[in-house]
Design a protein around this nucleic acid. Sequence first.
DNA 1: TATTGTTATACTCTATAACTATA
DNA 2: TATAGTTATAGAGTATAACAATA
Lengths: 147, 147
Amino acid sequence: MTSGARYDGTLEDGMAHQLRRASQAVNASWQLRSGDLTPPQFAVLQILDERGSLDQKTLGALAAVDRSTLTPLLDRLVARGLVTKNTDPDNRRRQLIALTPAGRERTALGREQAQETSRWIEELLGPDRLATLTLLLRELGDAGREQ
Amino acid sequence: MTSGARYDGTLEDGMAHQLRRASQAVNASWQLRSGDLTPPQFAVLQILDERGSLDQKTLGALAAVDRSTLTPLLDRLVARGLVTKNTDPDNRRRQLIALTPAGRERTALGREQAQETSRWIEELLGPDRLATLTLLLRELGDAGREQ
DNA sequence: TATTGTTATACTCTATAACTATA
DNA sequence: TATAGTTATAGAGTATAACAATA
């Protein structure tokens, strides 16, 4: 395989492919521990846990999930008893999404599972480089919103 | 693309979510330019262009695509006239995959399109931090193989 | 008219398991 | 028996467009 970090047009340096490979590694570690929650599902649960009840538009924006993807995603979480969906009486177009007690428990467990994955990465890269990676990924993600 | 509420960094600990958000940004940039090739499709074309004809097992390993995913992926590329599939006469269990002339052209174009995305990222992060990100992602991706 | 969310539709990725053909 | 690839199947993410209900 190639070495050297500068972009030179070869496959190993294609950002989309690298992100995909890194995601495969992290998702495998996460799924090994979480079992039954996908990353966007867990993101939704975590946001609800941190912020309380939210309408779908806000929730989707925070979790980076399209509204047409969010509907079936929430349907699955509702079916599993992790969240509830109720019409907002103040604006009947809105659906207010909230965690159930079971959802709160599952989120707490998920947080521990996420930290195990985080620890695995920290062992691999070291704490400073993990912090750097986190920062760079967030900048990239934020830039996507303005694109 | 989602819009509205802004990401405020509350999900710092979730690497899977960060990778997903960064991928959304990069994939959006890539897809804007490439139009009709997904990242794994382009990875396959690029590998074939660099290494010549390959059997599916080798190709799938290099592109990080499962064999059951690779079959329909290749079917689509064959249908579009970008690659060919031929039984290896020396081992008739194997299928040798090769680029067509049209596939070579599309790959060359894709390389230019990938560089445009790369330039966008470099403008965002600067060359040194892009190099760092590339290095960290490759380490993560490599670790996934051994997991 | 604009907004919120749902539904229909379509495509692709992802993976497990069973199967075929070949070695 | 083992290997390479296909097929069946299932589940989820992704997004566009049309739509209903509400504001």
